[in-house]
């Protein structure tokens, strides 16, 4: 990398303008009359390296995002597996519930065995 230091740190535009035009031109309020010039100047190699670094950074950003998307896939997969597991458990419980409430099971239950047929029935009309 090469650079050079300039002797003049800034130059007044007002003065140069006045000297250049010689017409006594006026300056508007708030108008910059001083242009700062960087003391550093980048050469072609520095530019190339900077561009390369920017490409690398952008590439890394892209890779990070792509990897993150993939990691979401794995998370989603885990959640799917969990849902499938819970669905299976729910299904098992439904089967168990159906077996426990089946007529055969109900009729064999202690409650059913303790029941007796009514001796007489009357009807409210």
């Amino acid at each position: 990398m090469s650079y050079q230091t300039t002797q003049q740190l800034y130059s007044s535009r007002r003065r140069s303008s006045l000297s250049n035009t010689g017409s006594g031109a006026t300056w508007n309020r708030n108008q910059n009359t001083v242009a700062f010039v960087s003391s550093m100047k980048l050469g072609p190699v520095a530019h190339t390296i900077l561009v390369a670094m920017m490409v690398v950074v952008l590439g890394l950003v892209y890779l990070t995002q792509a990897t993150r998307a993939t990691s979401y896939d794995y998370e989603a997969r885990d959640i799917d597996n969990r849902i499938a597991e819970l669905t299976t458990k729910k299904s098992d419980l439904e089967v168990e519930n159906a077996r426990l409430t089946a007529l055969e099971a109900v009729q064999k239950s202690k409650v059913a065995k303790a029941m007796v047929a009514p001796a007489a029935t009357d009807y409210a009309r």
Partner: peptide
């Protein structure tokens, strides 16, 4: 899918 057969959204 990846090498393990896990579906990916890409």
């Amino acid at each position: 899918t990846d090498v393990s057969g896990v579906p990916l959204t890409i």
